[in-house]
Measured scan of single mutants.
Amino acid sequence: MQRVNMIMAESPGLITICLLGYLLSAECTVFLDHENANKILNRPKRYNSGKLEEFVQGNLERECMEEKCSFEEAREVFENTERTTEFWKQYVDGDQCESNPCLNGGSCKDDINSYECWCPFGFEGKNCELDVTCNIKNGRCEQFCKNSADNKVVCSCTEGYRLAENQKSCEPAVPFPCGRVSVSQTSKLTRAETVFPDVDYVNSTEAETILDNITQSTQSFNDFTRVVGGEDAKPGQFPWQVVLNGKVDAFCGGSIVNEKWIVTAAHCVETGVKITVVAGEHNIEETEHTEQKRNVIRIIPHHNYNAAINKYNHDIALLELDEPLVLNSYVTPICIADKEYTNIFLKFGSGYVSGWGRVFHKGRSALVLQYLRVPLVDRATCLRSTKFTIYNNMFCAGFHEGGRDSCQGDSGGPHVTEVEGTSFLTGIISWGEECAMKGKYGIYTKVSRYVNWIKEKTKLT
């Protein structure tokens, strides 16, 4: 034993070699072989497995989906700052455009905790909710729209109204504003409101030439003092309507412009014939205590009207009353817009006519005020429907199939267009061939041609 100890002390290297040989010859039971080890760690190889990531292109799944990435790591994937920024906006807080917040056709661009709407022409605001041009839906104005110097929408209202708090709607500024039905039992019968379409306001006024200088022999019209197929109006439903009495009662109609003036057809009036105007009328054979009678003290036909040349060209006249009318729910003026808007309103496509005229061709006159909704007829169809001249200051309205029309005794009465609950004068009943005849239409004086003249002559002093 002493000898062994001496050998170990003198030859430590020998001992180490012996131990190493023993270990190498022993069977290893701690580690699995290569094949079995792979069965336990069965993990798919990654895209760049075996390579240094710093030297390969980034992978979106590896960089940002398996674990949260930084902007720089995302930049490695896209290799483009702009594309990385677009991805980053949604990656950080989701897609803010998912709810489609942009209105009126706006395009949404996502941002971090926010979004941006790219608005089409005519709109602005956070969600493109603000109209900035009158060309689109009248700028959301209830009545009139004008573009300011910086191309912003400025709404306005006709006389007797003021802008509401929203700067879009119009509200009454006087007790009985024009064009409004205020009798409670008839307010439910107000005709369907007309909503502004998209309009090209630059070209809204037709490029028409008034044929002022045409000389033409007097034409022989049949029954051209021209509501057939209409309905009984309720008291106060058309408070701007008046009836004219002269040699015979209810020979023509008219509309209240203001307390002192009536507008009617020029062919209705004769110099030297006494005319009485009755406002607030409903049943011409009954006294309903809503009527107001006034005498006409002055007749002003349009300066281009000449019955000797043509009885229905420039067929418009103004009547001055001896005493002002007292405005109330049964006696209310009709609204008159400017030339541009009167023309736009007419193009809405349908209007209402009213009167006490004959209820059928050569038949009896109506006792109760009649009204009828009539569609506008395109000019080409209008011209083809008659052998008589249709001037540019006239328009056609009615039904091709016949059966409904204005008729004798309705002449001078109103053709009105309702705009968001307020009625505007767009025409004056003038003439036609018979009444409600198939293929024939009622012919009306186009008020847009005469609004400046009306307003100039009827100013209240």
Rank of each mutant, 00 (worst) to 15 (best):
L383C: 06
T271V: 07
Y305H: 06
C119A: 01
G21C: 07
S182Q: 07
L369E: 06
V153M: 06
A164V: 05
T426W: 01
N343A: 07
E270H: 07
N127T: 06
C119E: 00
I262A: 03
N5D: 07
K362N: 13
P120N: 08
W118F: 09
W431F: 14
V296E: 00
P175E: 12
Q370I: 03
G230N: 11
N135K: 09
F55R: 15
E116M: 09
I334E: 01
L103A: 05
F224K: 13
R358A: 11
I136M: 10
Y47N: 15
K455F: 06
D315H: 01
F78M: 15
C155T: 00
P101G: 02
N38W: 08
H34I: 11
Q185V: 12
Q167E: 07
S182P: 06
V56I: 13
I7N: 14
C155E: 01
C335D: 01
I15F: 06
Q96Y: 06
S448N: 05
Y330R: 12
T458S: 11
L321A: 01
E340T: 13
D93G: 06
R162N: 09
C396S: 01
T264K: 01
N222T: 09
E401S: 10
V242C: 03
L244R: 01
V195F: 07
C435E: 03
V242N: 01
E340C: 03
K137Q: 12
V451M: 03
R384L: 09
R373N: 11
W261I: 01
M8R: 14
E285F: 11
S11H: 12
I309T: 07
E82K: 11
W118P: 02
E270M: 08
N306G: 03
T158H: 09
K459W: 05
T422Y: 04
G351L: 01
F123M: 03
D212Q: 13
S107E: 12
E79F: 09
A26Q: 02
F221Y: 08
E116D: 12
P12Y: 14
A164Q: 07
V451P: 01
L367S: 12
I297P: 02
H400D: 14
V263I: 09
K188F: 10
N306F: 04
R180N: 02
Y444W: 01
N42W: 06
V419W: 09
D405G: 14
E420A: 14
S329Q: 07
P235E: 07
G398K: 06
E340R: 09
E286G: 09
A307W: 09
S148M: 07
R226Y: 11
R3G: 11
V56E: 07
E208C: 06
L460S: 08
N245D: 06
R449Y: 14
V353S: 06
K311A: 09
N151P: 08
H282Q: 08
V227Y: 10
E320A: 03
N393K: 03
N166T: 03
E76V: 15
S184Q: 06
L346P: 02
P235N: 05
I344G: 09
L319G: 02
I275N: 03
N245E: 06
L319F: 04
Y391V: 07
H282C: 05
M394E: 02
T422D: 00
L189C: 06
F123S: 03
S114Y: 07
E35A: 12
E208L: 11
V154D: 07
R404C: 12
G355L: 08
E418C: 07
S169E: 09
C178T: 01
M65C: 05
N306I: 05
M65G: 03
C407I: 07
T271I: 09
C18L: 15
F360T: 15
G230V: 11
L321F: 01
S350P: 12
A308M: 10
K274S: 08
D212Y: 11
M437K: 13
S411E: 12
H303R: 11
L327G: 02
G409Y: 12
V227A: 12
F238L: 06
E456L: 09
V248H: 12
V227G: 13
C134Q: 02
L318S: 00
V199Y: 14
P375L: 08
K152N: 09
G421T: 06
K274R: 10
K438W: 11
P414D: 03
A317M: 03
A149V: 12
S217R: 07
N222K: 11
D232E: 13
E285T: 09
G355K: 13
N38T: 14
G349K: 08
E66Q: 07
S182A: 10
A26E: 02
A380Q: 08
T81L: 05
L325I: 03
G409S: 13
A436Q: 10
T225Q: 13
D232N: 12
K39V: 06
C145D: 00
I256Y: 01
T186S: 05
E54Q: 11
V263P: 00
Y22E: 03
P120Y: 03
L23Q: 03
L325F: 11
N310W: 04
N203D: 06
P177G: 02
A397W: 01
G105W: 02
I297E: 05
Q219F: 10
L327E: 03
P172F: 04
K260I: 04
A317E: 00
Y161P: 00
N100G: 05
S182L: 05
K109M: 07
C178S: 00
E61C: 03
G402Q: 13
V263H: 00
G357A: 14
L52P: 15
R449V: 13
N135C: 03
F55K: 15
C28D: 03
